[in-house]
Simulated assay, not measured.
Amino acid sequence: MAERLAEVEARRASVEELRAVTDAMRSLAAVRLQQALAVIGGTRAYAGVIGGALVQAVGLLAEGPARWPPQDGRGRPATVLFGPEHGFVGAFAERLADSALAGVPPGGVLWVVGSRAAALLEERGRPPDWTIPMATHTDAVTATGRRVAEALYRAAADGTLGTVAVLYGRSAQGGAPEVARDALLPLDLGTAGGNGRAVPPLTNLPPADLVPRMVDEYVFALLAHAAMESFAAENAARLAVLMAARQNIDATLDELTGAVRRLRQEQITTELIELATGAEALQNGIGNTSSVRAP
């Protein structure tokens, strides 16, 4: 009985430690989610501003709006997947991997941002053609977007890549994160960010030099926004998983606490029975001795 009680108490102590770790991870995921949601509006607005400026810059070109990169039949179609860096995201990583595998055309290129997503694709027999780690805090998300933009810009400019789509998670209030897919390249330089202003902007560079720089910045802005959306979705999925884990841990602790109480009560009852039995035996022994010594 004592050994079984000690075993259950040790198990309950282990589960309590697991609850503390889960609470810490849940708090961290909640903080990162709130930080990401606080800046997503800014990344979206920045992409819109750069897109509008690009439209205005293109309007200064003598030949008018164009597409970038030029569609000359070169380059392989590519998909850029922003996925989770770590685990504890439930089925969210699997959904992203399924969407990526279904969306990559034959002969297409798959770029993956996120170690967990890359490992999952390797397990499914489709290793990424290019991969980097995903940011683990909001301050590094835009830097990650910049790395992808620079590599993508070079590949598209030299004709390695043709059409490019971006696949990422998008957090949904009150529900599981959604999988979003946006066309990224080629860019229609005449409608990149909506309609430009009627008044020509003031510039310090010739339009022919300004437009390529604006294209580079606009691609970065779109990728940075997708990365921030993915970062928020990853932490939203992790928060949901950890909240469910906390509920299961609480239920397990309730069961173990009840088991400890029953075992302790059984132990006390057993000890009382043994004490009463011993006292009765002692009393009977004394009574028998007295009867033998009587005259």
Rank of each mutant, 00 (worst) to 15 (best):
A237F: 14
L18A: 15
Y46C: 03
A240Y: 04
E150M: 02
E280A: 14
A62Q: 05
L81M: 12
L239A: 15
V113Y: 14
A2C: 02
Q283Y: 03
A100L: 02
I50E: 01
T289N: 01
V21Y: 00
I40R: 15
A237W: 15
A118Y: 00
S171T: 06
D158C: 11
P106C: 06
V55I: 02
D216A: 13
P127I: 13
G73Y: 05
R76A: 11
W130H: 15
V179R: 07
F92P: 10
A227F: 12
T277C: 07
A66R: 09
L223P: 07
A10V: 01
T79V: 15
G159C: 06
P206K: 11
F231C: 11
G103V: 10
E17V: 03
P84Q: 10
L210V: 04
V31E: 14
G285S: 10
A135C: 12
A240L: 09
A66G: 13
L60C: 03
V21D: 12
F82T: 00
V141K: 07
G285C: 02
I273L: 14
A237C: 13
G87L: 08
T160K: 10
A97M: 12
V15R: 06
A221W: 13
G175P: 02
A294D: 02
R4L: 07
A38N: 09
F92H: 07
A232M: 12
L152Y: 08
Q173M: 01
G258W: 06
G278F: 02
T269S: 13
V112W: 00
A227I: 04
E217G: 04
F88I: 14
L272N: 11
Q34L: 10
P201S: 08
R293W: 04
V141N: 08
A172F: 04
V179E: 04
Y46A: 08
A2L: 13
E255H: 14
A176H: 10
R170P: 06
A118V: 03
D254M: 11
